[in-house]
Nucleic acid binder design. Structure first.
Lengths: 108, 108
DNA sequence: TAGCCATATAACATATTAGTTATATGGCTA
DNA sequence: TAGCCATATAACTAATATGTTATATGGCTA
């Protein structure tokens, strides 16, 4: 019996372009464990909601707008999800989409 | 018992940059079956040696130097291998490296 | 509802990518 | 060994990517 795979519609080239940046690979790595990799946040559960733009930009050592654009590239490729919460926006990995992307890549 | 994995040293960002191009994904796809995807060649076995620069450039509809550079990007990332043979240079997939790359990507 | 503050967007500079045409290189072969 | 011919490199152009600072946007909260 096979596990049903959700029909995630992915643009392989878009996904690979999003992944082909050391900065964005680093963000995805940190988001595997937001609670360990980012400062304590008063609001929301980092394990559920991820980390916010400012923390990510600070840790990368780049400006807030630069971090914002990296997060947009990852969001446009559907690899991460944004959750607005009390004035902050938390970003987390979308493991389902990441798995779908890996399956596509395994066919290369 | 696990199958021994060769210690292929790969730069993940370099590999992903090489893969993040529709042109280069197309080349890799065609090279899965060179005999079906390229004209008959007098010299060498396409299944073993792959296809040459000119055939690839012609099929992509780009110039010979443009194809040459795409092949260089893939070669620099170790994803394909060049085999010189009687004045032509054949390019084939390196399945071992591709598999190693996929294993790295599966850890993203 | 006024204002704060996190994020997004604009405008800009610079670097990289990807195409072109022209030319150099270098291994086969006659 | 002379020359051919496939490939590589050079020089250039245009588009894209990535960083900056300045500014706009818009949801919370006091």
């Amino acid at each position: 019996m096979t596990v049903a795979q959700p029909a995630v519609e992915l643009d392989l080239e878009l996904v690979l372009k999003a992944l082909s940046s050391a900065r964005r690979l680093q963000i995805l790595e940190w988001l595997k464990d937001p609670a360990s990799n980012f400062p304590v946040q008063e609001i929301g559960d980092p394990e559920i909601h991820g980390a916010c733009n400012q923390y990510i930009g600070d840790k990368l050592g780049i400006s807030q707008p630069a971090a914002s654009r990296h997060l947009k590239v990852l969001t446009d490729a559907s690899l991460i999800v944004a959750t607005p919460r009390q004035g902050w926006i938390y970003y987390r990995r979308d493991e389902e989409v990441l798995d779908a992307a890996k399956r596509l890549i395994n066919d290369i």
